[in-house]
Design a protein around this nucleic acid. Structure first.
Lengths: 148, 148
DNA sequence: GCCAAAATCACTCAAAAGGATGACGACAGA
DNA sequence: TCTGTCGTCATCCTTTTGAGTGATTTTGGC
């Protein structure tokens, strides 16, 4: 997030310099201030939208994650139970993919991380769930409302 | 979302008018153009961020809205589907125990058979389901109504 | 800017799981 | 009686998974 603000500032600076230069080109024309202001307004509006999107993208993902629903109970609150068990989002993500029957290698490829990373995450989630096997982890995950 | 753009435009217009007015106040000062541009940049940056947030929040809503209701059948008909897939009772029995998270050894002890026997049964049931891993077999078994 | 949590990756070793194949007895039905 | 299915068990070999440990980088909150 820090980086985004930094990039934002840099681009802003560059654009200001650019507009400062263009200023001398348009200053001779009537109503140049309006044009100048309009340009600045437009560019910074675009930049602002971009920044806003950047900043909220993370939240977007978590919102999408709480989708599935079972017939009996609504199943929307994985977030609460997840944190109660001290399981991170990434770990839950791995658990979900395990529940779909994917191997560690497949999960690694899907998430663009190494197989070792997947193993670390799964080991931790097994530990937190008290499971010794992935099938058991899936079962426990469903019992505790982490999985649909 | 349309409304946001509209509001955005309106606020933008009002602000431009406002800044136009302030312009006459600050125009007498040196470097007023810089100040003017800076003001416009700042306000529209803020507005842009706000718009970006608004837009993504709207996206969030739609994402949450697409909550599917997985059809919940009461689950009574394993017998029919079992035979349709050519899976024997014993094989289904092993599959059920696998779904509970038990290891081959535990299953063997529970059923009083050798671990090798469990492995042959599970291998056959995997083959009939088209699964390569036990987690996948469990998933497929549930999809096909063999497991609750 | 600092700090804690989270995420990433690596390495080793052991255990579990899976594929392939063969075999044998029980039993039901043609 | 012969045949096919089912359940049982084994052996060999490969792949997958899990445990344990340590390390680095990102991220997020204060």
């Amino acid at each position: 997030m820090k980086r985004h603000v930094l990039i934002y500032g840099l681009i802003g600076g560059v654009l200001i310099t650019l507009l400062k230069w263009t200023e001398y080109r348009f200053l001779v024309i009537d109503h140049s201030i309006e044009i100048y202001g309009g340009l600045i307004a437009a560019t910074f509006a675009v930049l602002g939208v971009w920044l806003g999107l950047k900043l909220t993208r993370a939240q977007q993902r978590t919102a999408v994650q709480e989708v599935p629903v079972t017939a009996g109970q609504p199943f929307v609150l994985d977030e609460r139970k997840r944190e109660d068990l001290g399981i991170t989002r990434r770990e839950l993500e791995i658990l979900e993919l395990i529940a779909r029957g994917m191997s560690n290698r497949e999960i690694a490829q899907k998430l663009y991380v190494s197989e070792n990373t997947v193993k670390t995450h799964s080991s931790r989630v097994f530990d937190k769930l008290g499971a010794r096997r992935r099938t058991q982890a899936v079962q426990l995950g469903k019992e505790r409302g982490l999985l649909p």
